[in-house]
Design a binder for these strands. Structure first.
Lengths: 241, 241
DNA sequence: CCCTCCAGTTGAACACGTTCAACTAGCCCC
DNA sequence: GGGGCTAGTTGAACGTGTTCAACTGGAGGG
């Protein structure tokens, strides 16, 4: 899932919560984030109260709301952290794998394994992300920067693979692969099988299927169908209205 | 695609809210549902309070919780009712349209037009869809009746269309079409264009594309790829009775 | 006729997320 | 040094969803 980085979200929102302008302020903000993430991990999101966060951070209840519009917004801090970790994990994989299939599988596997410790509240993140009203929602204008960053990563996945693609498809594929990743994550969130065996099976089979579909779509014989599909994407602009 | 099953332990909802056992009770339950749906439509979900629901229903606050475990559970009543209304709207369409494309387009258009009054809070459906803990989640056991009804409807859509399909594909297609419908609804939820023009465009283009993909998948020439895709579904599906 | 029983009903009470008017502390300008 | 100015801070107060112990009404048995 791809949520906007903290700073971008704050700058885009009209009534955004202020960033700290003071070293004292920055310290408070940090203490609040640290307290929140620790409590989320210890007790889960629902059982963590804002009062408990404020108490552990050593600030007043209202102070947390000076830096974070809502409890939900505290999750953004977690997301920012986890996305950076994901980039780090993916870097060596992309350096090693040279086939599209290997690169995709590596990326997706790294994603779900990196998120594994947070499986129980990753669902909550996705929940906010699916709400059209929420600024955390990946289809929102506020998130466009992050969305582009995420699709750019898939652009890199494609660029490093030995692959010949029609130009029109190549332009749209990163967005489509991002949607694929989102689907895998949605599946993973619901997956309760031991070791997330089902999600691993999904990645294994679906990735290889996706790669075959891509090469099928590249077949000149099927160009009309491909054009039709791409026209659909143009008409609705894949990221959503 | 099927999502993984939930824990059997939780499935056995031990403290399920009782159905009414009395005519007086049935009346109360009905008044509460009516009040809730009216208020949801008038003010949206968030701005509807349980106190307002109880007041309009003419019962005490606590009484609503005798029949519904939570505010969220009131939404299930909406889903059930909306599906019934959908069936009524779809009936004449399926009686008239004889091509798969016409039947699908008719069904999807009826869906989003029927849901239009509830657009502003329909986003909650997907919030719940993303939350594995929620009983409203369409993949949950509590929703299995609705889910099966929905896939059964797509079975009817297929049965009434003049179409030759490989048997293996035919068996899985209703589920796949249901996922297609869910995707359209997800798009619609985020659609803020006037008259939902974008969603109508999506239905127009995507349906015709889906129909072509189905006939492509039926091509004996592509049987290996089709088998591979169906094996994927088998691998991640629940082994049902 | 009264007693028992229990589905149904009640609203006060609770804990929570969130808001807000008032306060504090450090910095800058005169 | 004093007088603002404002980022930062405070906790009481509000409205919410939810819980619960107490109550009610009417059906059925004696």
């Amino acid at each position: 899932m791809n949520l906007p980085p903290r700073d971008a979200a704050r700058d885009a929102a009209p009534d955004a919560t202020p960033g700290a302008r003071t070293s004292r302020g920055e310290e408070s903000r940090q203490k609040i984030v640290d307290a929140a993430l620790a409590l989320f991990r210890e007790k889960g999101y629902e059982d963590t109260t804002m009062r408990a966060v404020a108490e552990r951070a050593g600030v007043a209840l209202g102070n947390a709301y000076y830096y974070f519009q809502s409890k939900e917004h505290l999750l953004q801090a977690y997301y920012a952290r986890s996305h950076e970790a994901h980039l780090e994990r993916v870097k060596p994989i992309l350096a090693r794998e040279r086939t599209l299939e290997g690169r995709l599988k590596g990326l997706l596997t790294a994603k779900i394994e990196g998120e594994e410790p947070y499986h129980r509240f990753a669902g909550l993140l996705f929940k906010s992300a699916a709400d059209p009203e929420s600024p955390l929602n990946p289809f929102s204008p506020e998130s466009s920067a992050t969305r582009q960053a995420a699709t750019a990563l898939f652009g890199e996945v494609l660029a490093g693979a030995k692959l010949r693609l029609p130009q029109d498809l190549k332009a749209r594929l990163p967005q489509l692969l991002w949607l694929f990743e989102m689907s895998v994550i949605l599946f993973w969130i619901h997956d309760r099988s031991p070791g997330r065996a089902r999600t691993h099976a999904l990645i294994e089979h679906a990735t290889s299927l996706v790669v075959r579909l891509i090469s099928l779509a590249s077949n000149p014989f099927l160009a009309p169908l491909r054009k039709k599909a791409l026209r659909l994407l143009d008409a609705i602009s894949v990221a959503g209205p």
